[in-house]
Simulated assay, not measured.
Amino acid sequence: MRRIVSSITDGIGFDILLVGLAMVFLVALAGLPLVYNVMMSFQQVDMFNLNTLSRPFAGMENYREVTTQPEFWLVMKNTAIFVFGSIGGQFALGFALALFFMARFPFAATIRGVFLVSWVMPGLVVGALWAFILAGDYGILNEMLKGLGLIDQSLFWKSDPRLSIWAVTIANIWLGLAFNMMLLSVGLAAIPRDLYEAAELDGANGWQRFSTITLPMMRSTVGAVLALGLIYTLQQFDLFPAITEGGPANSSTVAQYWAWQWSFQLFDFAKGATVSVMMLVFVLIASFVYVRSTRHEVRG
């Protein structure tokens, strides 16, 4: 017994124990549901056979039916707008704020902490707030745009098919802005200050220092931030029921919300699983990019 305890408490044995417990946790809470979901995408699953594992095998029929739905390409277009619009907006604004807060000025840390409030707020709460901000008749956003002279009459962000997907995208940019700023700030802080001082002594201006020092030194951080942004955006669900409910006429329905509609509104769990598996492919690609972007940092 003492030999077993000794083998566990020494460095190697304890590491093996921790890794083993982590593997059990991942298999139980992530691996099994994932396998179960993939299996459902190749079966016929509805309310009548959901509680049993004896289900008709459908092969690729679910994938064929999902991809031939009239709204399929609209959902894919909305998903692309939502994902790339969110990632681009979060990254650009997050990078700008990270650079801004690198400067030393009074209350910089306090102001930066205020930005982090958006990241810790639940998605449904953020959606409810933005539902009021984006309201066509009394929304704050319309009043701000009118005050700036950018629009003459109110825009109905949530009910206009041309604007609804952008309404949710704007809310998601605000939600993920602090996360991007935080990660990019960490990357900027890791760049040695003496590089900037040497470049300044050589006569390099601000843009030259940014393009020759900041961007090259931030390459791995930028790759990780973009990959994580893709993963989190593809998982974002809460904003849609709170702001647009996928409407009007599916103009703001994205893949993750479409999967929920298949499963919990139409009760076709196989089709919902099929859409989820299709999204999983994109998440795996983003995860691969993330791992590749951080590999050399881990080695270092």
Results as ranks from 00 to 15, higher is better:
L53T: 04
L34M: 11
L134T: 03
N180R: 13
L53Y: 07
G31N: 10
M23W: 06
V24C: 09
L155P: 14
V168D: 03
M1Y: 05
T233E: 08
T274C: 08
S7M: 10
G176K: 06
A96E: 07
V298Q: 14
P216F: 00
F48R: 15
L226V: 07
P216L: 00
A224H: 11
S6L: 08
M279L: 09
W119A: 11
V222L: 06
A190F: 06
P106S: 01
Y63P: 13
A30M: 14
R209T: 00
F84S: 09
Q43W: 04
L163H: 09
F179W: 12
F57R: 14
G13L: 00
S164A: 11
V117L: 12
W207G: 04
I191K: 15
P241E: 00
T244E: 04
L124G: 08
W157M: 00
V254L: 05
Q44A: 03
I12R: 15
E143N: 10
L280N: 13
P56A: 00
S86E: 02
L74Y: 01
R209E: 01
K146R: 14
F101M: 10
M279E: 02
T221K: 08
F282K: 12
G300Y: 06
A58M: 12
G127W: 02
L184H: 10
E61V: 03
R64V: 02
Q44I: 02
I170P: 14
R104N: 12
V291F: 15
F105S: 12
L234M: 12
Y138W: 06
S185N: 05
I111W: 08
A242N: 07
I285W: 09
W166D: 00
S251I: 02
F107K: 15
G20N: 11
V83Q: 11
L53R: 13
S185W: 02
P56N: 00
L266N: 11
R112P: 10
V24M: 12
G59F: 04
W73L: 08
I81W: 06
F132E: 07
L228N: 07
A190C: 08
M217F: 03
G11A: 01
R292K: 15
E65W: 03
E61I: 01
A98T: 08
V24Y: 11
A109Q: 15
F269Y: 10
F48E: 05
A249R: 13
A167T: 07
L188G: 05
R2Y: 00
F210V: 10
W73A: 05
E65Q: 14
S252Q: 04
L32E: 04
M144R: 13
G11H: 04
